[in-house]
Write a protein that binds this DNA or RNA. Sequence first.
RNA 1: GGAGAGGUGGCCGAGUGGUUGAAGGCGGCGGCCUCGAAAGCCGUUGUACUGCAUUGCGGUACCGUGGGUUCAAAUCCCACCCUCUCCGCCA
Length: 422
Amino acid sequence: MLDMKLLRENPDVLRAALARRRSAIALDEIIALDASRRSLVYEMEQLRAEQNRASGEIAQAKRAKQDASAAIAAMKEVSDKVKALEEREREMDAALRAQWMLVPNIPADEVPDGDDESANRLERTWREPRSFDFEPKDHVDLGQSLGILDFDGGAKVSGARFTVLRGAGARLERALITYMLDLHTLKHGYTEILPPFLVLGSSMEGAGQLPKFEQEAFKVRDRDLWLVPTAEVPLTNLHRDEIIEADRLPIKYAAYTPSFRSEAGSYGKDTRGMLRQHQFDKVELYKFTTPEQSWDELESLTRDAEAVLQGLELPYRVVTLPSGDYGFCAAMTHDLEVWLPGQNCYREISSCSNCTDFQARRANIRFRRDKKPELVHTLNGSGLAVGRTLVAIIENYQQKDGSVVIPNALRPYMNGLDRIEP
RNA sequence: GGAGAGGUGGCCGAGUGGUUGAAGGCGGCGGCCUCGAAAGCCGUUGUACUGCAUUGCGGUACCGUGGGUUCAAAUCCCACCCUCUCCGCCA
């Protein structure tokens, strides 16, 4: 949620920013709604002030055993008026809030202008893609012939976009989770969190998932509980409605959770394999910082995520998303894209964003350094998407005979196993 | 799932329907005292929105949440949420 002051004091700046973001929000409507609500509130408060004044007088009269029935009768009228105004104010406030909640964060100035991923700005590339002296297969063929990826089993048990991992494949997924958490907690100074995988609707709102992305999320029937689409949701809400002492910042969390996404609107996209699933494991990095720190912290968070790929020796590149391609809460996003030989392209494996104060305002997360509490900045990034990392390992470490070599860094987590063979 | 207790400011804890933003205490901040500190004493101490105003002075709201009664609600009524205790069930 943006600061409403932006709407009142700098509507043109806001309009330009939203245009840059390719957002089709009807600002004029919101501006008009806000103005009429505010004049209504002013009128109501005048009447309330009168009520309070008269109420004191009535109390005094009663104490002095004087008759106050005239004043009480007069106040009855004022009271009715206030109630009517309250009713209207409630409606207008709800309408205004509903619309304002749909306004996305605005991109930072440094974000390149452009519509979609073709306008990505390449920041850096790490390692050249490996050259094969045979035709590399994709993870589907490899995983099935190795008996570690069971797509039929996933479909049988849960339908489309679910995969069952077996044997060394399941072990590899678990090894990756532990490896990533160890790296971030032991080397990068993050505190490990294991949050609930079901959260309240209010938590989804606090993190910006609702109301806009309702159809993207899975909900428990008849209860106000949602399956987390990312650990970002519980992590954001961990400090909801808090005022954090400034010397505790930055707070850095690393959390493993599965992520549940309905992937509505992506029918026919990535249907083969396990690149796009309804459930995937992810280790998420999350930071609460001061406004001054947040841009540096975005860079270090991105580096922390990169360290996972470097540790696994997987070739990747880092891009900055263009203005028209932003997540709802993000002011700037770096994507990490890993090279997938089986797809012959780079694919997103992590998305690292500075949400500035957008989430913090919704979730009411502040810090105090002087007298006045100020909103924190929040940042999040995958460190990494575990399922896609598994895919990247299978495809990048495949051998001519169809086996897959285990990256050195993971062998301690695989009980010394150095290769998965049929 | 059954029975009971309770939710008040950063924390603890009072609060008869009428100058209650809310006693008291703790903590925090400022000061006195001291070579310095502790103790003691004095003072101060929320958030949001908003009007005038640019150190400041007002207004409104906020006592789990949402409704209701009333001229007036922390206080009365209703619903819901959460926490705790006991019983049952369960990994």
